[in-house]
């Protein structure tokens, strides 16, 4: 229902009395209104929807979600299996350059 993408805030400026920002999406740059994220700082990531920053990404929370599952992966690796319970050496990755359907 609402496409919103995280972009790195690289510059803050003013336009027609509105606080605006320049954001970086892996090299692509666009502008967004920052009126709804008044305390955002350059370097933080804003969630941008249709030209507006509607939220600021919480770095700690993102890390928590990620680490929760990375631990599972580590535990599985110690048992000698990959995360899906498959023995480590025969992962389902195809050989380099060769494609099997």
């Amino acid at each position: 229902m609402c496409l919103a993408i995280p972009g790195k805030l690289i510059e803050i400026y003013d336009e027609a009395g509105m606080k605006m920002g320049k954001l970086d999406y892996a090299g692509t740059i666009n502008t967004a209104c920052l009126e709804y994220v008044p305390d955002i700082r350059v370097g933080q990531y804003a969630l941008v929807h249709a030209g507006f920053a509607i939220g600021v990404v919480d770095e700690e929370e993102a890390q928590k979600t990620y680490e929760l599952w990375a631990e599972l992966e580590k535990a599985a690796a110690e048992e000698g299996t990959d995360i899906f319970g498959m023995p480590l050496d025969t992962g389902d990755e195809e050989r380099e350059g060769e494609v099997s359907p």
């Binding site: 972009g7 999406y25 892996a26 090299g27 666009n30």
Partner: peptide, 10 residues
């Protein structure tokens, strides 16, 4: 290209 992927996401 990463920047093209970024624009497509946007």
């Amino acid at each position: 290209d990463p920047a093209v992927a970024g624009a497509c996401e946007l």
